[in-house]
Design a binder for these strands. Structure first.
Lengths: 334, 334
DNA sequence: TTGAAAGCGTTACCAC
DNA sequence: GTGGTAACGCTTTCAA
């Protein structure tokens, strides 16, 4: 059990003080280039590994940015996460990730846990939180960004888009192409608030366009994915043909519906239009391609990074609200 | 800017020593119940927040377990990750996640970064690493587990399965059902070592069964997914019909191939069989369902947790090697 | 260009 | 049951 190699050990090997080693390893220009190189080399030889815990303790800065995602198995969130990792990595910040499984109670537990690590900022997906979560966060002077949503009552900064408004172009497009009897396929009321917002957006848009009331097809509790979409349609059976269009909460659900409908021998878009949400890969590749909404997942990540940069540089003094928008992508299912 | 409330402040307010506060907050039974309650209450009143950075520093235990994944946007890895999160959460350990984007150089950088946080264990996906990564890890007395693979020369413990051997049942199944002219669809030689192992497994199994040499269809650099599978088949064009079966490196790639083949008007499995790997949702839902291999992603996570428990309890003294196996799941594409 | 001293907040260890 | 002392590895600050 060899004991850990510290800066002191490196310093002794180099024949200088720990302070010089510290400076050398941080590429401080006041240390001569020759010394820097020598320190680096000897540190490597000794297998020295820098201790960020000690640094975090001494400087009272953790170097962490905490992030909550509903699910790590989601191409959209993954893209945002990648953009965050890259951008924050350049600022020498490390992401501390937790996934909530779409449950606010889990989010609360997670935030509590993440906060003990003293993150320098907190990034939450979505704008719905328990009261306890809100009070955990408030009054800490900790920069907070809610993303993937435009909450009415934000905790701090916001980078997202309106999930409700994003559905209007779909309804418009369906109405223009002669569809009138719409059914929304999504999770049961409850956990997935962004899904609920999309549902409300569809209902409102349909009313505004004078379409009949939108039917609801329940795909079960969140998170819902391909198999839930398929199962929901199988449960409805061939009666599904009484609708003109299935407006789905996401592309995976839409793909599940598409498969189930095809299995029944119905034609898409001939008998039925199907739309998704999120511009997932499956929508671009499936046969036929699924009409969807592109949501700029990567851009959300980049904007959050830019915002954090501004915050750390002291250039942001009011709560920001960035709307990244969204756009209809017409495919072959409508 | 109020300065931070520490145990010392709480101690002064309570009229006792910081040591007693420390014990009280950890619910140490040697502190009287009355004192514990009083300390808790006053701590809350003062808005005291426990500093786990200081704890990690003092005890030299970070409470972190570091994990590298090739990609966070992968249903299989996500399932393993969820099992790890749940299991380790019960042991009060927090996951520190990094994604390598299937690049060993990125893995090296990541491991370097993760190690500075003093993790209590390191979990790597896959068994291929740079020499520098290996030497960073060796000789630190840090528990290491490689998962999703059965490397010949492991760094420490292993929980996985043989990616090569897992392909033999597919080739057997195809041969039994009369397919002879196989083509493998996967990433170019290089980054994705598990993909390369699968390819080698197919080639070896085909030889063993006396089938003609397996053709290679290159889907580009890793990671490859749905769109790369589709593009690869589009590039080949209708000539693809000269093969009996497309053996794909993963289900998403298989789905891409399936769509492209269907778009050309060819029938699956009539004109061509298609197989995938990983038992992804898309394989179960697509029409037709894709023949695949189930790889027990969740079980890998659970086994890693059990192993870590044993290690921390000092019950494991030799390097363990757990093979979770895999099984053929015949669908409708073959 | 380099070094010495002090201290970040907590807890292990021993004493009472 | 409770408290005093020291130490974890690093960097800020001041001095040379």
């Amino acid at each position: 059990m060899s004991t850990r190699v510290t800066m002191r050990d490196v310093a002794e090997a180099v024949g200088m003080s720990p302070m010089t080693v510290s400076r050398a390893l941080r590429e401080d220009r006041t240390v001569s280039a020759k010394t820097r190189a020598r320190v680096r080399q000897i540190a490597d030889e000794l297998g020295y590994v820098y201790d960020s815990t000690a640094q975090a303790f001494r400087t009272q800065k953790s170097g962490f940015v905490a992030v909550t995602l509903p699910s790590i198995n989601n191409a959209n969130f993954a893209e945002t996460f990648r953009a965050l990792t890259n951008g924050l990595g350049e600022m020498s910040l490390q992401l501390l990730l937790g996934s909530t499984n779409y449950r606010v109670a889990r989010e609360e537990e997670l935030v509590r846990q993440l906060l003990t690590r003293n993150p320098e900022a907190l990034i939450l997906t979505g704008g719905h939180h328990t009261d306890a979560t809100r009070s955990l966060i408030q009054g800490r002077g900790l920069p907070v960004i809610e993303m993937w949503d435009l909450p009415a009552d934000p905790l701090g900064h916001v980078v997202g888009f309106s999930n409700g408004d994003a559905m209007a172009p779909i309804v418009d497009h369906l109405a223009r192409t002669g569809r009138r009897k719409l059914a929304f396929v999504g999770a049961s009321e409850g956990a997935d608030m962004r899904g609920a917002a999309r549902r409300a957006g569809v209902v409102a848009a349909a009313r505004a366009r004078g379409l009949p009331e939108v039917a609801m097809i329940d795909a079960g509790p969140a998170p819902v994915s391909m198999r839930h979409g398929a199962a929901a349609i199988e449960a409805v059976g061939r009666d599904v043909a009484r609708y003109d269009a299935l407006v789905c909460v996401s592309d995976p659900v839409a793909f599940g519906c598409l498969s189930a409908v095809q299995r029944m021998g119905l034609r898409v878009p001939g008998d039925l239009a199907i739309t998704g949400f999120g511009h997932f890969e499956v929508a671009k590749v499936s046969h036929p391609r699924i009409t969807t909404v592109n949501v700029q997942a990567e851009d959300i990540g980049r904007q959050v990074v830019t915002l954090l940069q501004g915050i750390f540089d002291g250039e942001v003094d009011t709560a920001m609200r960035v709307d990244v928008g969204s756009e209809l992508v017409v495919g072959e299912t409508s």
